[in-house]
Amino acid sequence: MKLVLNIWRQKNQNSRGGMVRYELDGVNEHMSFLEMLDVLNEQLTEKGEDPVTFEHDCREGICGCCGFMINGVAHGPHRGTTVCQLHMRHFRDGEELWLEPWRAAAFPVLKDLLVDRAAFDRIIAAGGFISVNTGSAQDANTIAVQKHCAELAMDAAACIGCGACVAACPNASASLFVGAKISHLALLPQGQPERSRRALNMVAQMQQEVFGSCTNIGECEAVCPKGVKLENIARMNREYIKAAWAYREEAAAGGGG
């Protein structure tokens, strides 16, 4: 099949970008979306033009590298799918597509469809962990975990950190990402000792990174390729409010709310 692709091209973080139109023939329905872009890039290379830069690595939907907007939807039209797992059978012959990078002040564009998501790492470094040095753990089965809690924790921990939630949110809020990590660790007995500080520190870091606030729109859940649920944001808010009572001074310093 034949496609018309309008792709955001931008040389680097400091230059101005713009849409460039490409026509691509011979697209096979079994190709993944990224394989379709590989074909385009082969053609551009043959012509001596700069291929389109996009982030990708595992191409199995788990590393979280890939992602861009297809016709205004993060990761494209098929729910629960990253662009590397999106196959061309979901598109029609002759369709015209617009590809843009994630748009958020906290995710500057580095080139074409590729953005800088280091803000996510800084949020994890602020508290998204359990402080246990190697070697100091007790036998694993001495910590019993309710199966139901373990399942809920796993649902939240499934987040791949791709950033689609931020890109889809009109406020560019990172609440789903942060809420997922706070939930994962708060749901487990191992996460209890640091529960309050974790919520305060991660939320404070999120605010420092100029992500917007959550206003319960729900676009994040709709585009999340791993089905991370909105209830994680509710849990984050509860954790934050509870923690703010326990550690009022730190909460005030972090900006609160």
């Binding site: 962990f129 694993a140 910590i143 309710q146 373990a150 924790a153 994962h184 487990l188 191992q190 996460g191």
Partner: peptide, 12 residues
Amino acid sequence: DQCVAQGVPFAR
């Protein structure tokens, strides 16, 4: 032991 202590949500 180490991974469970870190909060890895193994199947239960």
